[in-house]
Design a protein around this nucleic acid. Structure first.
Lengths: 230, 230
DNA sequence: CCCGAACGTTGCTCTTCGACAAACTCACGG
DNA sequence: CCGTGAGTTTGTCGAAGAGCAACGTTCGGG
């Protein structure tokens, strides 16, 4: 395995308060791995034996029903901890995580969790992360329960844009590959409906989309469609 | 204020590992208060200045949209900690909690939180609680996204039954007052639809309901309606 | 370069469920 | 004991959106 560089971690909130030597130790205990698009990092219900830090790429966190339907609970961006079930005293992962794009993650055996929580700032940051996620999920739930499909889809696209968007000529592009099916799995609708909505928006010049890629050309218009009060 | 009895806490998981003297200290710092049905204990967005333990009654935890619609995120039963935003490093409450029935809760100033987390078992238990809640919310979200209204309502009723149900002649009764509107707020539908469903179920003898009360007479039938695989 | 698979589009039909409306029942306070 | 308001029931109507079907497009691999 290639030697990892301390600068990988030194700017990330969970580690930013640490000495260079501590970071070195942490890195020496880490396993780094690349995941192809579509690969699972871990699966719902499996023993939570490692915790992770996403270095590069994006992940989808999904939950499945007994009926086999899947829904996307949230996305994970670079720099975030994930698979930290232990923080909530769970011994299995509560959801499955899949690489939405080619991704690289560090991981450590869960047995080191307790030790890590003694590092200054680490526990605080992981609980902040969980708090944010809980809030996000509650927001999604509320949206799902009260908003019509078009608004939900608009919100979902905006959320992805805010989380991963990068400026391009003529708009903000979502930073990872995403299909209509994926969007419908985030919003509890069908890929048909999503396709129709995106076509309509494209006709109005609000978004532009090629296969698996979406560029929001007029973010403000999309905000209006999402129905969020200003 | 009446002197509180140590036995109130000694059997509850967050405190069960503590010495009698520690429990005494904890109780001496607590404020006990009664809340009428419909009263808010705290509100979304307000400064999280106290944390709570529900002694008696039931709470609804609700989230509202900018549009003013409310949805019920989860219920809280006696013995549970709540308002523990600080555990997730938040300084405002992420949701509103309302007494679903006349309720009694203890509370402590949030400044004591750090001290409490040093008590053996306390931190562990609070994180377990949060982990369970996160799981529940994810389940609700998945249900909401994938299931038709009838199944969602059946699931919601079953969940309340499991959490608060008490045996009565001829069935299991939900342990707190609940309106059709409340159920629609849990499932993202309208009170009309809920009313029709309950009427239909009542005709089939699966439930019996008087105003604000619901008795599940044939739990197994309701499980079938909920579509959960056995 | 061609084939097949994965992804996307679009039209049509049919069902579900939300919206509106109106009436009824019960609990409670004066 | 009556009035008021909260909770519930039921009916009708229409639109949103799911399901089905068929076709088009892009990509990657042999």
């Amino acid at each position: 395995m290639p030697k990892l560089d301390e600068s990988l971690l030194s700017d990330l909130p969970p580690f930013s308060q640490l000495e260079r030597s501590q970071i070195r130790t942490i890195l020496d205990q880490a396993v780094s791995r690349r995941y192809d698009e579509g690969t699972a990092i871990f699966r719902e219900g499996h023993e939570a034996d490692r915790f992770y830090l996403l270095l590069d790429g994006y992940l989808r966190v999904i939950r499945s029903t007994e009926g086999g339907e899947e829904i996307i609970v949230l996305h994970i961006s670079p720099g975030q901890l994930f698979g930290i079930a232990k923080a909530l005293e769970r011994d299995t992962y509560p959801a499955t995580s899949i690489a939405a794009a080619e991704s690289i993650a560090l991981s450590w055996p869960m047995s080191l969790w307790t030790e890590f929580t003694t590092y200054p700032g680490f526990a605080t940051e992981s609980y902040k992360t969980l708090g944010r996620r809980l809030g996000e999920i509650q927001t999604t739930l509320t949206e799902m329960a009260t908003q019509a499909v078009e608004k939900r889809v608009a919100c979902a696209v905006l959320r992805m844009m805010n989380q991963s968007g990068r400026r391009t000529e003529g708009g903000v592009e979502i930073g990872f590959p995403i299909t209509r099916q994926n969007i419908s799995d985030m919003t509890g609708t069908t890929l048909h409906t999503v396709s129709r909505l995106l076509s309509a928006w494209e006709k109005d010049g609000v978004v532009a989309s090629r296969r698996k890629r979406i560029v929001v050309t007029k973010p403000h218009e999309l905000v209006l469609l999402s129905g969020v009060q200003g």
